[in-house]
Design a protein around this nucleic acid. Sequence first.
DNA 1: AATGAATGAGACTTCATTCAT
DNA 2: TATGAATGAAGTCTCATTCAT
Lengths: 198, 198, 198, 198
Amino acid sequence: MLTNDSEKKKIIIDAALKLFSKKGYTRARMMDIAKEAGMSYGLLYHYYKSKDAIFETIVEDWWSKLFSELASLKGSKLPIKNNLEKFIRFLLNAYATNPQQVEIYVTEVSRGFVYHSEHRVRENFLWVFALCEQLFAVYQDRGELRHDISTHHLANIFLGSIDSFMSNIVFGKVKITEDQGNRIVKSILDVFLHGATG
Amino acid sequence: MLTNDSEKKKIIIDAALKLFSKKGYTRARMMDIAKEAGMSYGLLYHYYKSKDAIFETIVEDWWSKLFSELASLKGSKLPIKNNLEKFIRFLLNAYATNPQQVEIYVTEVSRGFVYHSEHRVRENFLWVFALCEQLFAVYQDRGELRHDISTHHLANIFLGSIDSFMSNIVFGKVKITEDQGNRIVKSILDVFLHGATG
Amino acid sequence: MLTNDSEKKKIIIDAALKLFSKKGYTRARMMDIAKEAGMSYGLLYHYYKSKDAIFETIVEDWWSKLFSELASLKGSKLPIKNNLEKFIRFLLNAYATNPQQVEIYVTEVSRGFVYHSEHRVRENFLWVFALCEQLFAVYQDRGELRHDISTHHLANIFLGSIDSFMSNIVFGKVKITEDQGNRIVKSILDVFLHGATG
Amino acid sequence: MLTNDSEKKKIIIDAALKLFSKKGYTRARMMDIAKEAGMSYGLLYHYYKSKDAIFETIVEDWWSKLFSELASLKGSKLPIKNNLEKFIRFLLNAYATNPQQVEIYVTEVSRGFVYHSEHRVRENFLWVFALCEQLFAVYQDRGELRHDISTHHLANIFLGSIDSFMSNIVFGKVKITEDQGNRIVKSILDVFLHGATG
DNA sequence: AATGAATGAGACTTCATTCAT
DNA sequence: TATGAATGAAGTCTCATTCAT
């Protein structure tokens, strides 16, 4: 058969992705999602327990990608510049290939978790920060990062910079070209590593 | 009389501030706000046209503060370091004195404006960025900032760094001491101006 | 004003009484109850938390009447015949004055508590039996009831007899005249106390 | 083959019996019944037209057993005591051998037929009463039952007594020993025939 | 200025039943 | 015979807003 169980689930997730990113969690109705997915709303409940379960699936997927990427970076022995570049590119690429998931991450999760307090978002965030800090600690030890600023502060600055670009892209609803992507990567790395003063 | 018209409005705004920051816009009910304000929910409609009008009032207030601060910085002739420090301190101080408003800004406005598309949030954001870019352009002209990175990118990195600290503070629900505040300011300035490598 | 808060609640209860007894709990919709009560369904939720809360109010009212009657009988020093007669008359009269409540008791509570397991129906039933047994124990001590049958069995037989008449009346949807009521009372007392054989 | 058509039907009925008695008609879902029966819920519709048809089958089976027992008693020439004892034992035994069917009878049919008005439950009940009254009329003619109480009243008292014990057993979810059964039979007969006073 | 009773659109979810395979 | 994906009617409940008093 053409569409087996997991394919149907993917169709639903894709539809939900579209609707959540377009209208936000609250304003996206199950009926909208079903219509987008080309099925009756009743069928959604055949595959997912509730609206929230659909949301959770999307979010968990994002976190797991993020965690695994960070874990892979931590294991790498590359110089800091190359490693951080990989991470920035991973995020920019995530947006390029799946803009809606990033949009939901940005609008519903990154800031909106008042709405979804049950989703352990806070814990996941802290985890991302912790992984990033551990990465920076390694580079401090190797003398590639200054010691007079805590890894926590460094993580805030680095992640915040990326986040800002992502938000801008998401809210600007723009597609970024490869060239623009390259310049963003370069800007972040240059400023983060060497500063904005010449 | 003790509470005239504008005082009542302030009471309502304060109550809404508390509830929006505690539960988020959607989950804060008019009844909750009224109870917090010590009045009946019917009366809210005497002072504000709708729930949304209350929200808008809060948000507009935030924007106008932000705009006027940025305008004042643009007019200043101080060296970049001092000027940026003023801006960072303005934001940290805003949280210290009115944490709920900052919380709403962070959770509902900064990222969550999918829910409030009618509020010209996008325009306001772009305006903040534009003002920041104009400020940076001045410093590029004065040779205090490098020219090989666009002011737009610089603004993203700078504002994103601050944003990240603010989010952390908001979501961590922590009070920051003066000393911690000083260190945050120093970290942002150091890295932004001189980079994270020694 | 003509209809204050508790009067409105009574209107709702009366409407619910009518609908529950007519259609049963499950088939009676909130909208039906509201229509019967002459108000919008939203208003029902102003006065009661949920459909179940309305049901519970009805049922609790019935139990409290029943308990207080049984307690009063237990305190009485009348000969058994008079005392039991009072109890039978209380129940028959309850049906005469509030047939719907009795109907709900019979259809939803007495037998249907599979549907309402959360309502402590079992406990209430056991309590009624216990009170009845205590009453019979007093009469066994006073020599007015035989000792070779346990009070538990006696209670089953006595209450079951009444219950059967009530069910018949409820399901027959008949009004019983005073004369018919008297004959029922006499029959139950005669057979219970002296037996069906001459 | 091992399971032919009628065996499959029996498996379904047994599963439904279990579920209806456990959760009640409304709360027992077709899917639950299918799972219990070890088949897909779609297949249920191959053997029975609807959920209600399954229920009806169960109920009709109960009624037919009851009617045939009562008919047999009516044909018997035994003294009243022996004949009534047979009837009581038939019912107690029915519970012992098929408690779920009795449970459904008690919870759904005996009182709950508001939910199933289409099932001619009222007519069946009246029929049982009528048969019982005819039986009592025979004994009144033979001088074994007093004449000053109508057969209808006698039937109510007798059937109600038994019903009460059955309900107690069902709701207490207890298994009764042979000895306890004997005592119940004796109590009912003693009180019904000779009264509760010495 | 003040109250809170009243309204009803709108959202989620359940589940008996149908039907293509 | 057998499966379970698919459908959609129906029901409960929430809450912003209106309005009579």
